[in-house]
Design a protein around this nucleic acid. Structure first.
Length: 574
RNA sequence: GACUUGGUAGCUCAGCUGGUAGAGCACGUCCCUUUUAAGGAUGGGGUCCUGGGUUCGAGUCCCAGCCAGGUCACCA
């Protein structure tokens, strides 16, 4: 017993063998020619019934209704579902009715993939249907599929358990048709953004995921090790510092759709790996970048939904330009009624505590402002809003504000209470940049686990000279969540990170047991009782093992004599 | 990480105050030439997440653990 098999799985394996005995290959190698898909047939046939009189379609069987010598089934291809009509005497032209009676009715199951050839007609019930003349099994499915039924928008027996949906996303995609649509929309989002940027002449580039020094954001990294180089490497938390090196190198506009990795908590807004698009454009500033973001996101919304106004949860969000713009101090004053722009660190800490924010000594003035904003403002910003002019302490890569001391030229776009992008006029003064890194090191000493590292190689690049540059990072997953009305990041990632499933390792122990002279039936039960190896069996109490075996024998109603206690003891002691 | 809810058949779920594990769908068998979540009849299918404890007796109560969801914390 290598694998535990349910009754339904065993029935399918038996069917598989029977197909092979009939000379039918359940996994044929050759191309199956397809000349139509479910959706186009259903769209076009009602208007012109001369179409599709010799079609070949293929897909997965999703339902079957068998009535003697006539049957209906539905198959699902990438475009949707279509009904099939099978008639015994048309599938089987001779007296041999095996193909219908045995192969179709008995050996074919929901979940199998078949190809059919036939003509399209409309049933009495008004359903566009393929009248099947021939069918071919293309893949026998060995596991039963969750069967979801639907009538007038009402779903019966929905496949809803989130754990199973994410771990076995293929089932989710097969059975929950709206899931596929979310990922198609995500693809549209990315394509729309890429087209927008390429049309402006920016270069799409790729930069390292494995980095000797992680940087470009405040976050904890994943750490790994390169054997040949004998060096620690980090999975990137951002690609900012590499893209800026390319601006130094003379490209005027570069962007990258980057997988970034952050070794932090998980939630419905956070996955350890996520996608971010970063863009850097030379000779521009953050005001220019705000205009670009507005235009780009509005454009994406139109490409995805043909409107800028979307229902997201309980809110209607409109991405139509122009978006509201607040400075950070204005936003805080707006939501707390207090102007904090002139407070020093001590007064600000008092103020933060007074409005119920926890603080500690590792927090500098900038971090305090960030906390106040994150607590009191961000959740209330539902419509897309730009927040500008951040304190210098929390933005070590952004250029000092041209007119407001202590601030930098930075903005974030907030939407539905969450940040969707972050951008600044990039710092290109190498002396200032070195000082900022040193301040980060100081913050690190005070205990800020997210303080940045000093990247000497990056400083060397900036010292070579980077033109004034506007930079942007935009979270693709967060944007996809909003634009697809998904309440969890797991719904816009095919395979969200999950804790590995704990599976009892019983493989091979059966063979080990039988080799040690234990009869096969009992070896099987020992596996079921949780003994994964001879070693674990030898460590067990013989009385307990004996009781477990007798219990299982009774539970499974096995028609075999119970083992003697001496017998069990002898297995354990040999 | 904290709190909280859940884990029972392939899927969705019920199972009261502790007393022989249930339903629908799916599956098997038989009958049936156009059905629409469902043609009719009938039958099989369970490590009640795991391990301890209480009890004459645990799916149910207690403790510990595993996995997942939610909220919060952390975190762009």
């Amino acid at each position: 017993m290598i694998q535990k098999i349910s009754e339904q799985e065993q029935i399918r394996r038996d069917a598989l063998r029977e197909l092979q005995e009939l000379g039918i290959d359940p996994y044929p190698p050759q191309t199956f020619m397809i000349n139509a898909c479910a959706r186009e047939i259903k769209e076009n046939f009602p208007n012109n019934q001369s179409l599709y009189q010799d079609v070949q379609v293929a897909g997965r069987i999703m339902s079957r209704r068998i009535m003697g010598s006539a049957s209906f089934a539905e198959i699902q291809d990438d475009s949707g579902r279509i009904q099939l009509y099978f008639n015994r005497d048309e599938i089987c032209l001779s007296d041999d009715k095996t193909m219908y009676n045995t192969v179709f009715k008995r050996l074919t199951d929901i979940g199998d993939i078949i190809g059919v050839r036939g003509f399209v007609f409309v049933t009495k019930m008004g359903e566009t249907t393929v009248h099947v003349k021939e069918f071919t099994i293309l893949c026998k499915s060995l596991r039963p599929l969750p069967v979801v039924k639907e009538k007038e928008g009402k779903i019966y027996h929905a496949f809803t358990d989130p754990e199973q949906r994410y771990r076995q996303r293929y089932l989710d995609l097969i059975v929950n048709s709206e899931v596929k649509e979310v990922f198609r929309q995500r693809a549209t989002l990315i394509q729309s953004m890429r087209d927008f940027l390429l049309k402006r002449g920016y270069l799409e580039v790729e930069t390292p995921v494995l980095q000797p020094i992680y940087g470009g954001a405040a976050a904890r990294p994943f750490k790994t090790y390169h054997n040949t180089l004998e060096t620690t490497l980090y999975l990137r938390i951002a690609n900012e510092l590499y893209l800026k090196r390319l601006i130094v190198g003379g490209f005027d506009g570069v962007f990258e759709f980057a997988k970034d990795f952050r070794n932090e908590g998980m939630s419905r807004f956070h996955n350890p790996e996520f996608t971010q698009m970063e863009l850097y454009v030379a000779y521009k500033d953050y005001d220019w970048m705000m205009d670009l973001v507005e235009e780009m996101v509005e454009n994406i919304a139109l490409d995805m939904h043909e409107t800028t106004s979307l229902q997201v949860g309980e809110h209607t969000i409109d991405f139509k330009r122009p978006w509201k713009r607040y400075t950070m101090y204005e936003a805080i004053e707006h939501f707390t009624g207090t102007d904090i722009s002139d407070m020093d660190e001590a007064r600000m800490r008092d103020f933060a505590q007074n409005i119920g924010i926890e603080t500690d000594q590792s927090m500098g003035r900038g971090k305090l402002i960030d906390e106040i904003f994150g607590e009191k403002c961000e959740p209330h910003l539902i419509q897309p809003t730009f927040i500008t002019d951040y304190p210098v302490e929390m933005s070590p890569l952004a250029k000092k504000h041209r007119s407001k001391p202590g601030l930098v030229e930075r903005f974030e776009a907030i939407c539905n209470g969450k940040e969707i992008c972050n951008a600044f006029s990039e710092l290109n003064d190498p002396i200032d940049q070195r000082q900022r890194f040193e301040e980060q090191i100081e913050l690190g000493r005070r205990g800020d686990p997210e303080a940045m590292m000093l990247d000497e190689d990056f400083l060397k690049a900036i010292e070579t000279g980077m033109p004034p540059t506007a930079g942007l990072g935009i979270g693709i997953d967060r944007l996809a969540m909003i634009l697809t009305n998904s309440k969890s990041i797991q719904d816009v990632l095919f395979f969200p990170q999950m804790r590995p499933e704990k599976t009892a390792s019983v493989q091979g122990s059966y063979a080990e047991f039988t080799q040690a002279g234990i009869p096969g039936q009992w070896a099987e039960l020992l596996e079921q009782a949780g003994y994964g190896s001879l070693k674990s069996l030898h460590e067990a109490n013989p009385n307990k093992v004996f009781n477990q075996l007798c219990g299982l024998r009774k539970k499974l109603k096995l028609d075999i004599p119970a083992p003697g206690i001496e017998e069990v003891t002898s297995w354990i002691n040999t």
